[in-house]
Amino acid sequence: MVLGSGPVSAGGGTKAILAALAANAGIALAKFVGFAITGASSMLAEAVHSVADTSNQGLLLLGQRTSKRRATKEHPFGFGRDRYFYSFIVALMLFTLGSAFAIYEGIHKLQHPEPLTTPIVAVIILVVAIGLEGYSFRTAIVESRKIKGDVSWWGFIRQSRTPELPVVLLEDAGALLGLVFALFGVGLSVLTGDPYWDAIGTLMIGALLGVIAIILIIEMKSLLIGEGATPPELDRISAAIVGGRVQRLIHIRTQYLGPDELLVAAKIALEPGLPLTDVAAEIDAAEARIREAVKAAGLIYLEPDLDRTPSTA
């Protein structure tokens, strides 16, 4: 699996976030107007969903900004994980404002069904919204492909250390499917004259958002706790360490301090009897090789030691 050879610029993620922000803000307003005219619960659920998504994109932008703060004595490794924190908040908002509200509204409409008025307005708004969400989703795909490499899309969502693009990808995919579900509910309500279908569409939207939110919560929690280098990155780092008078890698630990900065700590075996100046030179050379192999390796701590591997002779 290859996710890309170096750290990811925030520019691609920012472009995808801004595209989603603009699309969701306009769509949310249109959906609220549609709900006011038609009374369709699926339209209300989708409107709240779009409001949540718009707020989420604002939080992602905030996380990108606050993560750039300089390191302090209290936070000597900087604030790179702010991007993980705000992405985790986004997942919680998607679950509470999106999923929980849609399920509540769907159950309410099942218990108290109401006929739709002027449903053609809802259909037009939903079709236009699908087009706008499609543009946002396409932007997220284009930006994600720049760093995805040859891994699958599911693998990218699971293993990417850059939180914004997987979040926007899942949000946009959920928004598109949610619009289809809303169109399904409104359409069947019109064709059958039964408003229960509108409530069913609303429940489908709630279930969809719940699944997406749970996936994001699990992934962002993992990043917040701290994830190490990906297997391909770890292989490249391990190979880069050995060279010159570095005989072998004894053990290594890695952790992402933020999407663009990887901490590398390792104990390395050097040739015995090296002068202190040569030890320092070998460590410097190994650090340079690591940074060349993995651009995200910003903090590197190498501890020299002797090779105490038992002889097999």
Rank of each mutant, 00 (worst) to 15 (best):
residue 52 A to E: 14
residue 242 V to D: 10
residue 7 P to C: 15
residue 124 I to M: 12
residue 227 E to I: 04
residue 311 S to M: 13
residue 208 L to P: 08
residue 177 L to F: 13
residue 80 G to E: 09
residue 82 D to L: 06
residue 182 A to Q: 01
residue 78 G to A: 14
residue 18 L to F: 11
residue 234 L to K: 03
residue 179 L to Y: 00
residue 181 F to T: 05
residue 145 R to D: 12
residue 144 S to P: 05
residue 83 R to I: 13
residue 143 E to S: 00
residue 117 T to F: 06
residue 174 G to P: 07
residue 246 V to T: 04
residue 279 V to K: 00
residue 80 G to T: 12
residue 137 F to K: 06
residue 219 E to P: 02
residue 229 A to M: 05
residue 127 V to Y: 02
residue 186 V to W: 02
residue 267 K to I: 08
residue 134 G to A: 10
residue 300 I to C: 05
residue 200 I to L: 14
residue 51 V to D: 02
residue 212 I to G: 01
residue 179 L to H: 01
residue 102 A to V: 02
residue 129 A to R: 00
residue 49 H to V: 10
residue 298 G to T: 13
residue 289 R to Q: 11
residue 136 S to W: 02
residue 136 S to K: 06
residue 23 A to N: 04
residue 12 G to C: 01
residue 50 S to K: 11
residue 157 I to R: 06
residue 191 L to A: 15
residue 247 Q to A: 13
residue 252 I to W: 04
residue 277 T to M: 13
residue 17 I to E: 08
residue 22 A to K: 03
residue 209 L to M: 11
residue 292 E to F: 02
residue 87 S to P: 11
residue 170 L to V: 05
residue 149 G to I: 07
residue 239 A to D: 13
residue 244 G to E: 09
residue 216 L to V: 01
residue 155 G to D: 08
residue 206 G to K: 08
residue 305 D to E: 07
residue 286 A to G: 09
residue 147 I to V: 15
residue 14 T to W: 05
residue 165 L to W: 04
residue 135 Y to H: 13
residue 37 I to F: 00
residue 51 V to T: 04
residue 147 I to S: 12
residue 206 G to R: 06
residue 15 K to W: 05
residue 185 G to L: 02
residue 168 V to Y: 07
residue 200 I to T: 12
residue 14 T to I: 03
residue 149 G to N: 07
residue 8 V to G: 03
residue 132 L to W: 07
residue 66 T to P: 06
residue 272 P to N: 03
residue 193 G to V: 07
residue 166 P to L: 10
residue 286 A to L: 09
residue 193 G to S: 05
residue 194 D to N: 15
residue 86 Y to Q: 05
residue 26 G to W: 02
residue 221 K to R: 15
residue 25 A to H: 04
residue 70 R to L: 14
residue 87 S to M: 11
residue 235 D to E: 15
residue 78 G to K: 12
residue 224 L to H: 01
residue 180 V to R: 00
residue 146 K to W: 09
residue 215 I to L: 15
residue 151 V to E: 01
residue 136 S to L: 03
residue 262 L to G: 00
residue 75 H to R: 14
residue 125 I to K: 09
residue 77 F to E: 09
residue 312 T to Y: 13
residue 220 M to Q: 15
residue 102 A to Y: 08
residue 298 G to Q: 14
residue 90 V to W: 11
residue 27 I to S: 12
residue 56 N to A: 07
residue 93 M to A: 14
